[in-house]
Amino acid sequence: MTTATHPDARSGQRGPDKFSARRRELATATLKTLAELGYARTSLREIAQNSAFSHGVLHYYFRDKLDLIAEAVRIYEDLCVTRYDEAVASATTADELRRDFSSMFVATLRADSSLHRLWYDLRNQTRYEESLRDEVREIELRRTEMIWNVVHRFCELRGAPARMTRQLVYVAFDGIFQQGLDDLLNGADPEMTGARDLLDEVFAAL
């Protein structure tokens, strides 16, 4: 049997690397469309109709919409997991870090609400789509580490160890984030007052 040669390999470039780069490019370019459509209303054909790429191109690089959404969310999370690094590095007091973190927390909810909605939409689908679970679990671990870095530095600056475990800290902050997103999207709390108050409560409990 003759083994088919990938077109990228024939071009003299490293096929798998170029294929992965093209997948990343397409997922990045369609991220806005994915976020606007959400999981339930998304298909490769719908994405193609709302982007500059044909259905055939998308289908060539992605098995199905789950494959594309997972790649897009992974790319977004690559950026998100560093969003609080500046606050952690620059804060000189625990209170300063708490304030800066809360401001960034609220800012990303406002600026990227559709993308965060896509993340929670994808995470919910793991209850039905086993193929997504490894990807989502990996992202969850990175988000847990991101939040723990903030809390660890906060406790260092305060001069006392955390009274919560890493996992409990993540569950608390993630719950506030998700509720804040819901309140923002449905207009219940456009000023994010509830999220800010809950964040202060968690920091006080640490």
Score class of each variant (00 low, 15 high):
T3C: 03
T5F: 11
H6E: 12
H6P: 03
P7D: 15
A9K: 03
R10I: 14
G12N: 05
Q13M: 15
R14A: 09
P16I: 06
D17S: 11
A21W: 08
R22I: 06
R23M: 00
A29C: 08
A29H: 03
A29N: 15
A29E: 00
T33L: 07
A35D: 05
S43E: 05
L44E: 05
L44W: 09
R45I: 13
A52V: 04
H55E: 15
H55P: 06
G56D: 12
H59Y: 05
Y61H: 07
F62A: 00
K65N: 04
D67G: 10
A72Y: 00
V73H: 04
V73Y: 01
I75T: 02
I75F: 05
L79S: 01
C80L: 12
V81S: 01
R83L: 12
V88N: 03
A89R: 13
A94S: 10
D95S: 15
L97W: 08
R99K: 15
D100E: 15
S102G: 08
S103W: 12
S103A: 14
V106K: 07
A107G: 12
A111F: 14
A111C: 13
H116Q: 14
R117D: 06
R117G: 01
W119E: 00
Y120K: 01
L122V: 04
Q125H: 12
T126I: 09
R127G: 08
S131W: 02
S131R: 15
L132N: 04
R133K: 07
D134Y: 07
E135G: 01
V136K: 00
V136Y: 10
V136D: 05
R137P: 04
E138M: 05
E140H: 12
E140W: 11
I147S: 07
V151A: 02
V151M: 10
R153M: 08
R153C: 10
R153A: 08
F154A: 08
C155P: 02
E156S: 12
G159R: 06
A160V: 15
P161F: 11
R163W: 00
T165W: 04
T165F: 11
Q167K: 14
Q167H: 13
V169E: 01
V171I: 14
G175C: 06
G180P: 10
D183A: 12
N186M: 10
N186Q: 13
D189C: 05
P190Y: 10
E191W: 12
T193F: 03
A195T: 01
R196M: 00
D200L: 07
L206G: 01
L206K: 09
